[in-house]
């Protein structure tokens, strides 16, 4: 039996729309993930610190109020400072042209609103399983 995937989920900045991420947390738990959800208003350093402490395989964040570009940049910078290399997943109200830029910055997958549960699980698992095989 393989080890379960561990993922740290968090809301960053002042945005408090957490419906999506709370649903994803439960969804991933139901599919065998170990989920550590940090709640709202986390700084980039707090997310990276928690991910290191938890020995997480991935980080998942979500945005609804237009702060995704700034906060993702801060997160990627904080990860680089700590030499942390795990896939970052980002979901929420993100314009498609921004999504392409987020992926250039290093985000593994961007999930738009309306993505159904099974697809979220499949894409997250896909990235993590590929990482494990490599």
């Amino acid at each position: 039996m393989t080890k379960r995937h561990r993922i740290v989920l968090a809301k960053m900045g002042l945005d408090c729309h957490d419906t999506g991420i709370v649903i994803v947390a439960q969804l991933l738990r139901d599919h065998g993930f170990e989920v550590i959800y940090l709640g709202l208003h986390n700084s980039a350093d707090a997310v990276v610190k928690a991910a290191l402490q938890e020995n997480a395989d991935a980080i998942g964040i979500s945005f609804l109020s237009g702060q995704h570009m700034t906060q993702v940049r801060l997160l990627i910078e904080a990860m680089a400072r700590q030499r942390m290399q795990v896939p970052v997943f980002c979901g929420g109200v993100v314009p498609r042209e921004d999504a392409a830029e987020l992926q250039k910055m290093g985000v593994a997958e961007v999930f738009f609103p309306g993505t159904l549960g099974p697809e979220v699980v499949a894409r997250v698992s896909g990235v993590l399983d590929r990482g494990r095989a490599a």
Binding site: G13, L14, S65, Q67, Q71, L74
Partner: peptide
């Protein structure tokens, strides 16, 4: 905007990337 909603001035470090957005 969100910083004001939470009682922060626009120049508070916590407001980074959020000033005037929502």
């Amino acid at each position: 905007d969100l910083p004001t909603s939470y009682g922060f001035d626009s120049d508070d470090p916590i407001a980074q990337g959020e000033v005037g957005v929502t």
